Amino acid sequence: MNSKTLFVAFSTQKGGVGKTTFTVLAASYLHYLKGYNIAVVDCDYPQHSITAMRKRDSELVNSNQHYKLLAYNQFKALNKKAYPILCATSGDAITIASEYIKNHANEIDIVFFDLPGTVNSEGVIGSLASMDYIFTPITADRVVLESTLSFAMTINNLLVQNNEFNLKGLHLFWNQVDKRERTNLYEVYEKTISDLELKLMTTYIPDTKRYKKELFGEKPSIFRSTLFPADKRLMRGSNLEDLITEIGFIIKL
């Protein structure tokens, strides 16, 4: 990979469609399985969901022998620590990320940003303008889709098509796809997306509860965690690996 650290965000102005989940899953997959050096900037004020998730993960690892041994073996094999999660506001996210990269001994390949779910929040547009790539989950709910397409068109017109900014592209992908739904519904939506000249990824994410599965209990399989990658058994049928592979191709990993 080239020496420039990439700034990447899963971003949308509609809550509950998976931007925080995909930030964690992509960061953990690339850092723990693929060997990239990743950092995450959590600027989703006030909940700071990823910071809270790391706290839960750490507490469970420290109190559970199974997870403690799993973590020990993982980090010994990797010969590196868990990726850092930096708390920030939308306004100072880029400054905090840049300072961390500058002062960190090892090269950081990708910084993932978890930004607030509205472009009206202070500093959000400025942070989005500093991204290299934005990935936006969409669902086949009409209200969610209309809101998301409005967000995507705004970012595309203001930032992607403006050579003054770093942003190379915004890419939409389907999330929470129910296979029982009529396929022509997606065909109609995809024609609208194409007519708006927005980019739609080929990978879709099925509607499955595993995307909400965190560390819990004695020895369950792991899916969403800031300290471990998703369990390979749970990745089957989730399309997560396909999604990250497609993202890797887009951002030229």
Rank of each mutant, 00 (worst) to 15 (best):
V160A: 02
V41S: 00
Y100P: 05
A105Q: 13
D132W: 00
T51S: 15
P229K: 03
I108T: 14
H171T: 01
F151Q: 02
L70D: 04
V24E: 00
L158K: 04
K191L: 14
Q47V: 14
T21C: 10
D109C: 11
L25T: 05
H31K: 08
E164G: 00
R182Q: 15
T139C: 09
S221L: 14
G117V: 03
E190Y: 04
T89V: 04
K179S: 14
R54C: 10
Q161R: 13
N64Y: 06
L78T: 11
I101C: 15
K80Y: 09
N157T: 09
T5H: 07
T154F: 11
L215Q: 05
M235Q: 12
E146D: 14
F10K: 02
E246H: 12
T95F: 12
R182P: 03
D195T: 09
N106C: 12
G217T: 06
D141N: 13
L234R: 04
N62I: 01
N120E: 15
E214N: 09
I50H: 02
G248R: 12
D207L: 11
G237D: 07
T23G: 04
V143A: 06
T245L: 13
T208W: 11
N120P: 01
I251G: 01
R180S: 12
L159T: 05
L158W: 01
D132G: 04
I125C: 01
K199A: 14
N184V: 06
Y186L: 07
N37Y: 14
F228C: 04
K34G: 11
S90Y: 00
F75P: 01
L215E: 02
S63T: 11
F216Q: 14
G169R: 04
F10I: 09
I85N: 02
I222V: 15
I134E: 01
Y83P: 04
L170S: 02
Y36K: 15
E197A: 15
T245P: 00
Y186N: 05
Y100W: 10
R236H: 11
N62M: 11
L172H: 06
A105G: 11
I244M: 10
K68M: 12
V143P: 00
P46A: 13
L172Y: 09
V119F: 08
R236S: 10
A105I: 12
P84L: 07
I110D: 03
M1T: 08
I94M: 04
K76H: 11
Q74D: 08
K80F: 08
N73K: 15
S147W: 01
Y72Q: 15
P116F: 05
K252M: 11
I155T: 10
L172K: 08
V124M: 02
L170Q: 05
L33F: 00
G15N: 11
L6K: 15
Y100E: 05
L227W: 00
F75N: 03
D44M: 03
D42F: 03
I96T: 12
R142I: 12
N166L: 11
F7C: 03
Q161L: 07
I108M: 10
I94H: 00
K212S: 13
I96Q: 07
F216E: 05
L145Y: 08
L30A: 03
I222P: 01
T12A: 15
N184M: 10
G248D: 08
D207H: 14
N106L: 12
V177Y: 09
K168M: 07
K19N: 06
L86H: 05
G117N: 09
E107M: 13
L227K: 08
E107F: 12
D42I: 03
T203K: 14
V24M: 10
N175T: 07
F165N: 03
P229I: 06
K191I: 13
